[in-house]
Design a protein around this nucleic acid. Structure first.
Length: 361
DNA sequence: TTCCCGGTTA
DNA sequence: TAACCGGGAA
């Protein structure tokens, strides 16, 4: 090492040590996850099922491992391969997805399954570029599937990896602008072999050790290489741009019930908030509740306000006034509406809360 | 209660 | 750049 020219010393030894040390750490500490082929099995030749990798990565977008694990098992049991999923009606996919949020993911999941089944004969493409062209697969997911399922040397950057790298190099540029710099750093340290294990190792390190709050630097295999930890400034990275305050919106929803104890739901428009999901009929959600809310009711009934439901979306808080009423004689639902027992309806969380407000009220 | 966290699309 | 959710921590 002493005889290595300083030009070579600069990059190669440090990068070798980060990837080598991280992979050795992953060999010992990899999380056991339902969709994962662990380092040991991977070394003995076992390959992950690209369908399983894809499904898990879509579910893991913006969603924690703890939430995804049981839901992933349900999906995999119901649709064991991509052709089975492609053959399912979109409404079944959306219903199974209910409660997971970001429903565009479920719509794109189905779209993607159809494209893979019909245009790729049920075989997932094995390059980052071709994966990136599929619905719902962006830069992160394309790289993750290429690396994890096919061991391609694809630079994977998720929130965990952004945090790890911004600390390793004390990257002062705020996210998301820092992403380019992070990618350059990763290019320098990303190994040619075991690309998938390296990606998963970085993610596990970010999730378990290099956490947002109170990172466990004493247990970190690369703390020696970490500029932020050397300066005791771990928690100051990554730097992020200030977020702006969420406005509050209000609205009213109407829970109409029939003699069978069923409730009237309607399918929301395909695009936009909670797109394609079932919900209670009601008003628009705006800054204030002006005009006659009952004009938005699905029927003329003795509406009783039974409570409120509050919920927070990405960019606003919502308060819904919840009204309950019995369907009048001769009420006919329209074609986009359906009677469902409330306990059986697969609903987004805000609508579950509204239904609960009826049951309590 | 409020705050924080996180990928893709248009 | 803004729209798009829900869970867990503070």
């Amino acid at each position: 090492m002493e005889n290595v020219p300083s030009s070579a010393k600069k990059k190669s030894p440090a990068s070798r040590s980060v990837s080598g040390v991280l992979l050795a750490w992953y060999d010992r500490h990899a999380r056991e996850l339902p969709w994962r082929v662990g380092p040991k099995a991977r070394k003995s030749g076992e390959r992950p099922d690209p369908y399983a990798v894809w499904l898990s990565e879509i579910m893991l977008q913006q969603t924690t491992v703890a939430t995804v694990a049981p839901r992933y098992a349900e999906f995999l049991a119901r649709w064991p391969d991509v052709k089975a999923m492609a053959a399912a009606p979109l409404d079944d996919i959306l219903g199974q997805w209910a409660g997971l949020g970001y429903y565009a993911r479920a719509r794109n999941l189905h779209k993607c399954a159809v494209v893979v089944a019909e245009e790729h004969d049920g075989v997932f493409p094995d390059t980052e570029e071709h994966l990136r062209a599929l619905p719902g697969i962006g830069a992160y997911t394309a790289a993750a599937i290429a690396a994890i399922a096919f061991d391609r040397r694809a630079i994977v950057i998720d929130g965990n990896i952004e945090r790890v790298v911004s600390r390793l190099y004390e990257i002062a540029t705020p996210l998301p602008a820092a992403k380019e710099e992070i990618k350059v750093r990763l290019e320098e340290i990303w190994p040619a072999k075991r690309s998938g294990d390296f990606a998963q190792g970085l993610i596990d390190l970010g999730a378990g050790i290099c956490r947002p709050k109170a990172p466990m630097c004493l247990l970190c295999p690369v703390s020696e290489n970490c500029a932020a930890q050397k300066a005791s400034r771990q928690e100051n990275f990554p730097v992020k741009v200030a977020r702006k305050a969420k406005p509050t919106r209000v609205g009213a929803v109407f829970a109409l019930t029939n003699a069978k104890g069923e409730m009237l739901f309607e399918r929301r428009p395909e695009k936009g908030l909670l797109g394609g999901m079932l919900g209670l009929p009601g008003t628009e959600w705006k800054e204030n509740l002006n005009g006659d809310v009952f004009e938005s009711a699905p029927a003329k009934a003795k509406w009783q306000k039974t409570g409120e439901a509050t919920h927070t979306f990405t960019h606003f808080h919502l308060t819904l006034d919840v009204y309950a009423g019995a369907a009048p004689k001769g009420f006919r639902r329209s074609t986009d509406q359906q009677w469902i027992r409330p306990d059986e309806a697969r609903l987004p969380t805000v609508m579950k809360k509204a239904v609960k407000a009826v049951e309590k009220g």
